Computed example of a mutant assay.
Amino acid sequence: MDAVQNGQSFTVTRDGHQIGELIPLRRRRRFVPRSEFAAMSRTASDVSLEAFRSDQDATAEQETDDPYAR
């Protein structure tokens, strides 16, 4: 388990046949470096602000219900 925790992977066999893999879990990043974000942004498609707002208006509740009035 220490080896797996340190990034090593293992193939599990039974009678010489591969039946599984023991691999370390990926750790979720909490931070994306600015350079990586900038690189991804360069290839992203343009967003139409008008279409975005229209989509929001179509899906958001338009009524301002008072949650305490029920």
Rank of each mutant, 00 (worst) to 15 (best):
E50K: 11
Y68P: 03
S35C: 09
S48R: 04
D46F: 10
T59R: 12
M40E: 08
P33E: 07
I23W: 05
Y68Q: 13
G16E: 15
D15V: 00
M40R: 02
R26W: 01
D15R: 08
T13H: 12
R27D: 09
E21L: 15
T59K: 06
A60N: 02
M1S: 06
P33G: 02
Q56L: 13
F31H: 15
P24D: 01
S45M: 07
G16C: 14
A38T: 12
D15K: 10
G16V: 11
R53I: 03
T11V: 13
G7S: 01
R34G: 08
N6Q: 07
D2F: 00
V4T: 01
I23E: 12
D2V: 05
V47S: 08
M1L: 07
T59H: 12
E21W: 11
P33L: 10
D66G: 00
Q56I: 15
A60G: 03
A51H: 15
E63V: 14
R28A: 08
E36N: 04
S41C: 05
E36C: 07
S41A: 04
V12T: 04
Q5S: 00
A51P: 15
T13D: 07
R14W: 08
V47P: 03
F37E: 06
P67W: 01
R70T: 15
A60K: 10
Q56M: 14
P33I: 06
D46N: 05
L49I: 13
G16D: 14
S45E: 13
V32E: 03
T64W: 09
P24I: 01
S41W: 04
V12W: 02
V4A: 06
L25H: 05
D15H: 08
L22Q: 01
R14T: 11
Q8A: 08
R28W: 05
E61C: 10
Q8D: 07
S45W: 05
F31D: 14
E36P: 04
S48T: 03
E36K: 03
F10N: 03
R34M: 15
S54I: 14
S35H: 13
E50N: 11
M40T: 02
T59D: 03
D2W: 04
V47L: 05
E61K: 07
D65P: 11
R70K: 08
H17R: 14
D2C: 01
D46G: 06
S54F: 12
T59C: 03
P33H: 09
L49K: 10
D57P: 01
D15T: 11
R27P: 04
V32W: 00
S45F: 10
V32R: 02
E61F: 04
T11I: 12
D46C: 05
S54V: 14
N6L: 03
R53L: 06
Q56Y: 13
T11A: 11
R34C: 15
R27Q: 13
I19H: 13
H17Y: 08
D55T: 14
A3F: 07
Q18M: 09
L22H: 01
P33M: 10
D46Q: 10
A44P: 01
T43N: 15
R29K: 06
Y68L: 11
D57M: 12
R26T: 08
I23C: 08
V12D: 01
Q62D: 11
R42N: 02
D65W: 07
P67A: 01
R26E: 07
E50M: 12
T59Y: 02
E50P: 11
T43S: 13
V4H: 01
N6T: 04
D57W: 04
R27I: 08
